[in-house]
């Protein structure tokens, strides 16, 4: 246990040291943290809903409405803040599912081999080839859900495949090494082999994949909202844009803020996540540090 904590401490130190070099990555990390905070405390701070007042539609920015108002008179900034949580919730949940399935499939496939391996590899091939977003749209179109969990599950229907492959090749290469042979001889539990040998090797890869999965999930879920396929009740960035487009926001300059604020929110988060993965990549991959 102690050396896990030590490992974590070293990791954080490395992370901090490298972040200072790569300003973009540091900024990315901070932005992500800010978004997480907003997601968690947002709904308690900002209020949405209440009486719609079309007379107040599309007001320019003012002190009480820093980003102006929307088509029904609602405060844009408030909606933006409140809308953070649903998006990030689903995104993170989907990434967790994707990574879990990917790691499990990879481990089982690589370690057990044989028939299980062939079957799983077939499935992985299919998942890699089938166009993910199209399948997600189709399934979401049939299963009209408003549950974040189900939505997250739909989003992760093909994303696990790449990770599964990578984990599998790690497991395969380790299976034939002396560590595992020796461990088996000592009748060490599978847990030990997986925990000590496998995970540290795939760990970095999984972490980066996780973050990229979050970006992918957000991309896909916003797409669903924009199509009107996932009618989650409540406000989120996706539905904001959907409503805006539906109301012809594109054709009036007044509605610019309402349309572009959630777009900006999405883009900033995606960019931040991607930048942050770069520093993670450098921490885990010492060869890149020279750059």
């Amino acid at each position: 246990m102690r050396d896990r904590l030590y490992g974590l401490k070293m990791f954080c130190k490395d992370l901090w040291r490298l972040s200072k070099h790569d300003k973009g990555a540091l900024a990315g990390g901070c932005v992500v943290v800010v978004y997480c905070l907003v997601a968690v405390i947002g709904p308690y701070v900002a209020r949405v809903g209440g009486v719609a007042n079309p007379a107040d539609a599309y007001l320019p920015p003012s002190l009480s409405h820093p980003l102006g108002t929307g088509p029904l008179g609602q405060d844009v900034l408030a909606e933006l803040v409140v809308g953070t949580r649903p998006i990030m919730e689903v995104g993170v949940l989907a990434a967790v599912m994707t990574v879990s399935v990917g790691v499990v499939v990879g481990l089982v496939s690589g370690y057990l081999g044989g028939f299980a391996d062939s079957v799983l590899m077939r499935a992985t091939d299919v998942a890699l080839t089938v166009p993910g977003l199209a399948l997600v749209i189709v399934i979401a179109g049939v299963v009209r859900t408003s549950s974040p969990v189900v939505l997250a599950a739909i989003l992760s229907v093909t994303g696990w495949a790449g990770l599964a492959r990578a984990v599998r090749s790690q497991a395969l290469s380790l299976r034939s090494t002396e560590f595992v042979e020796a461990a088996k001889q000592q009748a060490l539990p599978l847990r030990n082999i997986v925990g000590r040998q496998l995970l540290p090797n795939v760990g970095p890869y999984v972490a980066i994949h996780f973050l990229l999965d979050v970006t992918g999930a957000i991309y896909a879920e916003v797409a669903l909202f924009l199509l009107g396929v996932a009618p989650m009740s409540g406000t989120n960035w996706g539905t904001m844009i959907y409503l805006a487009m539906g109301q012809g926001a594109l054709f009036t300059t007044k509605s610019m803020l309402y349309l572009f604020s959630p777009m900006a929110a999405i883009v900033v988060l995606q960019v931040a996540l991607v930048f942050f993965t770069r520093v993670l990549d450098a921490v885990f991959n010492p060869r890149l540090r020279a750059q």
Partner: peptide
């Protein structure tokens, strides 16, 4: 084939879908 799968596994940012 493994190398190809590797390339598919980690797309360059934001395209995991």
């Amino acid at each position: 084939a493994d190398a190809r799968a590797e390339a598919r596994a980690l797309p360059a940012g934001g395209s995991a879908a």
